[in-house]
Each structure stands twice: as structure tokens, then as C-alpha cells.
Amino acid sequence: MTDRILEIGRRGLDTTDQNVKAMMNNIVNAQTPGFKKSQVQVNSFPVMLQKAQNKSAGAQAMVPEVKSVQQDKTHGALLRTGSPTDLAVVGEGYFALEGASGELYTRDGRFTLDENGVLKSVSGRNPVLGQGGSIAVVPGSSIEIMQNGDIMSDGAKIDTMKIVVFEDPSKLESVNNVVFKVPENGSLIYSVNENPRVLQGYIEASNVNIMDEMMQMIFLQRVYGFDAKIIQTRDASLTRSLEMGRPAQ
């Protein structure tokens, strides 16, 4: 026999636990440029009620469940660094990177030039894409990115930054909350922004707000306590009902 109230309590604890996982990762990445915070989507009581009503009675316990984990795609603040290979997209759009299997998208514009003059992501793994493929300057020459995304090297235009705009960025699949990809078998409408606005010498900060996370922390700790109380109370009442059948001593 599965006791439904115990089950609600257990799923409540589980849901809170998953929230803590997301929260902890958000906090430690409060200083990671281009980071987009994770948010746990939990199906609320009304949604569960509706589900239960549509199915035969008792088919589904009205327990909270984690629906999905999504990233809040709001933009972080722009920070000035002054480094020529630090870029930030102003407004909508993502930088395109070359991944092992298809393009990757990010708003983390901390790029570097490698030993061959190729512009790469901060980890050095992925070349940054221009509208004509990966971007390379003659080793040792300067690189300058104009506000309209044109890439100049020693005074000559070599390419334009590829800034991709998505119709619904929430459908992007997260690789590590900084880099995103188009989901497998997913159809995402996107276009290359012909008139991007790029700022050289700036990076985009993490969109995690430490104060929000602190509030979330207090809230989660309380909810966890309530969920535990549900189980304790139910446990006590079950004990009582067992004692009821026992002969008086």
C-alpha cells in the first residue's frame, strides 16, 4: 500500500531538493560571465488537480512534480574590461561557436586569439564564427571589432561577427548554462542578425542575483521543514490507528 499523504510529503522533499541543486549552481556561478541562471519549473497544485480530474479517480496522486529545468535568458549587466578580444552583444542575439557536433550559441564573449591567430572561446575549445566561417587574423596583427560587428585587422575588413537571433530562445538546450545548442530533432526558428550591435572591450556578467538566491534559500529551507512535518504528522496518525486496535493493557 502506498500512502498518498506520505507520498505527497516525499515528493515535496524531492522537489525542494532539486530546487537546492539548481540554486547552489546558480550561486557558485554568480561571477561567471555569460551565465544564465537555472529555474526549476514545478507543476503547481491546480495543474495536478486538473490532471487528476481528467484521469480516472485515484489514477494520480496530487503530488508536486518537477516539470523541467529552464534557464532564465535575461541579459546580464555589461562590464568594461578594455581587452580587445572581449565582446558583448547589445540587445538580442547570441555569438555562434563551432562545436564538435554543430553550432553552439553563447553570450559569453571572452574570446582569445590562439597561436595561429584564430579567435576562440575562453576555454580555447571552440572557434568563434563570423558570417564567413571561423575568424582568423595574420598571427601578430591587431583585431578590432566595430559596433556593427565588422571585424577589422590592420585596417582591413576581414569578416562580420555572426550574431544569431532566436524566435524563442527558451527552447535552446543548455550545455552548461553559458553555452547553448539547438535541441536534437528540435525545430527552432532563427536568423542571422544582419545589423548586430557588438561592443568591444566589454563582457556580459552572470544574470544571477545573489539577493534573489538568498531569499530562495530561506524559502526552500522552510518548505523542506513543512514537507518533513507532513510526513511526521502522517506517521504519528498511522501509529495512533495501529494502537487503536490493540487491547487495553
Binding site: 549552481n25 537555472s38 529545468v69 529552464q70 538546450e173 543548455s174
Partner: peptide, 8 residues
């Protein structure tokens, strides 16, 4: 939907 969490 994805149910993945970052690891730090």
C-alpha cells in the same frame, strides 16, 4: 523537458 542540473 530537460531535468539537468549544472555541476559548479
Amino acid at each position: 523537458d530537460s531535468l539537468e542540473y549544472g555541476t559548479g
